[in-house]
Write a protein that binds this DNA or RNA. Structure first.
Lengths: 230, 230
DNA sequence: GTCTATATGACGATAGAC
DNA sequence: GTCTATCGTCATATAGAC
């Protein structure tokens, strides 16, 4: 009887491992065939089991999509939260707003190019009838709040004009990044981040954006002028 | 025998009418259930025929998607080509670049909000395995070329800096409009153009964009300063 | 608890009668 | 041109072996 809780832990761990395997394979399939191309039969086939067995772990295909949404949202939130935290911690004085924002933009867009399946699921609406549950969406909401804190910190440090609306800035920031990612993934999905015809335009766009919001006292460096070299 | 060509015309006209009806109903269904939610069975049901009968007009579901893509690309190209032609013809001297670009941006984004099904099909990749054929894509290519001519004309007239790269401008322009449309459609598809939380930001974004590209001699009006209200 | 076996109904697609 | 009949595949559900 003393071994019961341990056996339970083992079972739960085993169960969690299977769930992770399902998610990994689902991402593989979505990467190959698009988010809408995911099929439970194909997942089962690649795992060497029968389709009904999947229902032990996920009550429906929607639930699988929801777990994938949550996983993707958590991953990009972690990458960005960690990346921008370091960026702010190690920020040297005199660094231009454009440089800082460009760093964050590259981190985000690079991730989306490396994870096109998650990106489609998170930022388009590829599955008819599926909407993320509040729980799956939670990491995305948290990421927006973190992002808001980061921009507010930049404003406090004087890199962003004091009179700028952080809400507007954040909305327009999301629009620009979404535009780059959407165009690249829709028009030339096989180009990598470094060579993408739209991802390459990040520098110009972000520089323009940063110039619009930067304080006048912030020293313009090479970075913040990059878009003007013509 | 003299009536044969007329009978043929009649048949062909009737056939074309049926094809148009299929496309209309397909758009209806895609608007209700998303682009991926289109089903031939549902089209047949609403037309009062059996699914196999659709194969007389379209050899596959892909062919139907291709006809829809071509139709959407033609419609938005017509709207924009006509709209920007009038805009340039009636352009008063002294009008700011921001005003002109805002007008074009509104025309485009308004159309996408009124035609979300076409927009998803044209600017996302909602259908696994489907890529538009070169023929279906042709109107989109022509639209890009027209757009290029319009920007070149603005540059010739002195509203856009002489040293600006039209290719870069056009790429970034597409990115910004795509970003606004994608965010609005993915995050709040039921908000109309006038009230959309992202479409409302068009003014700020386009003004910022225009300021970046406008010639210094172009007289700044209220419009071009809107985003800078301090 | 976890699996296999089996069934249902919708889908895209094809063959062939009329 | 439209139909019926049919096929293979899909998501989904349930019964029951182990």
């Amino acid at each position: 009887m003393a071994t019961e809780p341990i056996a339970l832990d083992r079972r739960q761990r085993r169960r969690q491992e299977t769930i992770e395997e399902v998610l990994d394979i689902a991402v593989e399939i979505m990467t190959e065939h698009g988010v809408g191309g995911l099929s439970l039969g194909e997942v089962a086939r690649r795992m060497g089991i029968r389709p009904p067995s999947l229902y032990v772990y996920f009550p429906s295909k929607e639930a699988l999509y929801d777990a994938l949404f949550a996983r993707g949202a958590r991953e990009i939130a972690d990458v960005l939260t960690e990346g921008t935290r370091r960026l702010l911690d190690e920020l040297e004085p005199g660094r231009s707003l454009a440089d800082v924002m460009l760093d964050a933009a590259r981190t985000f867009v690079r991730w989306t190019m490396e994870h096109p399946a998650y990106t489609q699921l998170l930022y388009w609406r590829p599955v008819p009838g599926y909407e993320p549950s509040p729980e799956a969406f939670a990491p995305a909401v948290a990421m927006v709040e973190t992002s808001r804190d980061r921009f507010a910190e930049l404003q406090r440090r004087g890199l962003i004009r004091a009179d700028a609306s952080i809400d507007d800035l954040q909305r327009d920031w999301a629009v620009i990044l979404t535009g780059v990612v959407t165009r690249q993934l829709a028009n030339a999905p096989h180009e990598k981040f470094e060579e993408g015809r739209f991802t390459s335009g990040l520098t110009d766009l972000v520089t323009m954006f940063a110039r619009h919001y930067e304080s006048d006292q912030s020293t313009p460096t090479r970075g913040s002028r990059r878009a003007r070299q013509r």
